[in-house]
Simulated scan of single mutants.
Amino acid sequence: MGRYTGPVCRLCRREGTNLFLKGARCYSNKCAIVRRDGVPGMHQFRRGKASEYAIRLREKQKVKRYYGIFERQFRKYYAEANRKTGNTGDALMSLLERRLDNVVARLQFAASRPQSRQFIRHGHILVNGKKVDIPSYLVRPGDQISIKNREHSRNLALENQQADFLPPVPDWLDRISTDPPEARVSRLPSVQDVTLPVTPQLIVELLSR
């Protein structure tokens, strides 16, 4: 199965929350969640009460679509989180937050995670001074994230940082006002740093069956 190429606003409506897949549009009155109520489809208001399985499945799908990952990738993250000590759900969300495409979006270098993945694939992002073109790269404390010192790369990042509304940069990332822009990973993210309204324990209960 390939990557979803349909209207991404349908995904937000299906999950009942804003997944921030279209950049600045998601913060405006044009957002599909604001304009249209209910899930997509002809029979949206005829559906009965969701089962316990459906509730847990929706939590997993919400996280997958928010971070833009496939089922096989998600299972690998869960397996790695399950090997760690402590709460598996918290470890899972921490791993997903450490993805380079998420970090670039959280630093406001890109308007959305889909655009962030494109930036990384096209070689606009440097980690510790070296080009990294793998969106799933996991950052570590002390890593330096910067925009490539090239006019086109700098202009792309500057355009995104001048948007009408920008979400705050999380405190586990320290952005430095330089030209080209750069930032530092100060610590590992925790589940409290995740802005998506999600209950990780429901995902663990689903995948541990």
Rank of each mutant, 00 (worst) to 15 (best):
N87G: 08
V132Q: 00
R13I: 09
S186R: 07
P141M: 11
N102Y: 05
L96A: 07
F45T: 11
R106I: 04
V198L: 08
W172D: 11
G129L: 00
A183C: 03
C31L: 04
N18M: 03
C9A: 04
V63S: 05
D37M: 14
A54T: 15
A50T: 10
I33V: 12
G89S: 13
K64C: 11
S94L: 05
E159K: 15
L19S: 05
K49L: 15
V185Y: 02
R154M: 13
A54K: 12
P135R: 03
E151N: 08
N160A: 08
Q44A: 15
G16Q: 01
H122P: 02
E71I: 11
R209W: 01
Q61G: 13
N29H: 07
Y66F: 15
C9L: 06
L11N: 03
K131R: 08
T178C: 04
R175A: 12
I145E: 04
S190H: 05
R58E: 14
V132G: 00
P167L: 14
S28I: 00
R150D: 11
P181L: 07
L92E: 01
L57S: 12
N102P: 05
V132T: 01
E97Q: 13
G23P: 09
G89C: 15
V194P: 00
A105G: 00
I147C: 07
C9V: 00
G2L: 13
G2M: 12
V8L: 12
